[in-house]
């Protein structure tokens, strides 16, 4: 395997692609935490819902999976509104454990509901678009496009947060809710919109993940992403959406590029070590910057 180093750039590109989706899948979590100080423990369930939206619209109505991103986002918005008005609104001043349990409960309800509606079977679909070639190795377009779209969504979110009045209000509430209220910001409305937007982005990322990996979808698939999302959120700085995206890119690149590097070093189980490396790096970053990369 002497020529593995020469294809290191491929691994990095591949890591950036997967990382951008990981990043988008984390932004909802970190956005809600940043503004409301609520940790959405049921995060994975919304990713699962997004995946099912894509799966069903594609298999039942042959809708282009990329178009299903829009209904997935809208379903997420609606679920976010529901989550806010049913659970979070009354718990904003409650101890953290209350919101933790209520978001966890909401996640469990969604998973069990998915199981009742669609069964526990794994479901999958095949959607191909051909490939680009990089260093002579195929880079499937079903992986490139979701990454591009994820990047687009993150840029849109950036514009929303930093170039609009709503964004100013959101950032003001993040920094000092009481101060923002004194200045005339409708804090509750900001909370409401943030949760809706955060969950919407999460279900949208579920749709992109369904296209990206096309693995079997089942009601518990979200668990695979929940831990990753927490790791990335902490790495990027809890509360910082852009930090989450950068954290996603870093984790993606480590996951991919560390495998050839460990192979070169003669490690017996390079893939297993990549998980180890991810967590080691996170520990180091947190030692140097306890608030995460872009955390305040």
């Amino acid at each position: 395997m002497a020529d593995i180093t020469s294809i290191l750039p491929y691994y990095i590109i591949s890591g950036l692609l997967v990382g951008s989706i990981y990043g988008l899948a984390t932004i909802g979590l970190t956005l809600i935490f940043g503004v409301l100080r609520v940790v959405n423990v049921g995060h994975g369930a919304y990713i699962m819902i997004g995946m099912y939206v894509t799966f069903w619209l594609f298999t039942l109505y042959s809708l282009n999976p990329f178009i299903t991103l829009i209904p997935a986002f809208l379903v997420g918005l609606a679920l976010g509104m529901l989550l806010f008005y049913v659970a979070l609104k009354r718990l904003l001043r409650a101890p953290e454990l209350s919101t933790l349990i209520s978001t966890f409960g909401f996640g469990v309800i969604l998973e069990e509901l998915a199981k009742v509606l669609w069964g526990a079977d794994y479901r999958g679909f095949v959607y191909s678009l051909g490939s680009l070639y990089f260093q002579g190795i195929p880079l499937p377009l079903v992986r490139v496009w979701p990454a591009v779209i994820a990047l687009g969504l993150v840029i849109a979110l950036y514009v929303l947060l930093y170039r609009t009045r709503l964004g100013v209000a959101v950032r003001a509430v993040t920094q000092d809710p009481e101060g923002a209220m004194v200045c005339g910001v409708d804090v509750e409305r900001v909370y409401f919109l943030t949760v809706a937007l955060g969950i919407g982005l999460t279900t949208a990322s579920g749709a992109l993940l369904a296209i990206y990996f096309q693995q079997g979808i089942n009601p518990y698939i979200g668990h695979l992403y929940t831990l990753r999302a927490f790791v990335i959120a902490v790495l990027g700085g809890l509360g910082s959406p852009i930090g989450a995206f950068i954290g996603g890119l870093i984790v993606g690149v480590i996951e991919q590029a560390s495998v050839p590097l460990f192979t070169m070093l003669g490690a017996p189980n390079p893939f297993g070590l990549s998980v180890f490396l991810t967590f080691t790096l996170i520990l180091v970053i947190l030692l140097l910057r306890p608030q995460g990369l872009l955390g305040r």
């Binding site: 395997m1 020529d3 593995i4 294809i7 491929y10 691994y11 591949s14 997967v18 190795i137 990996f213 693995q215 695979l224 996951e255 991919q256 495998v259 050839p260 192979t263 189980n269 390079p270 893939f271 297993g272 990549s274 998980v275």
Partner: peptide
């Protein structure tokens, strides 16, 4: 002859090597 951890989503690193082998 390589393994991957439980919960792996993306097998690209192994498959790229396989394409070379």
């Amino acid at each position: 002859d390589k393994s991957f951890p439980i919960g792996t989503l993306d097998f690209t690193p192994l498959l790229v090597e396989l394409a070379v082998v």
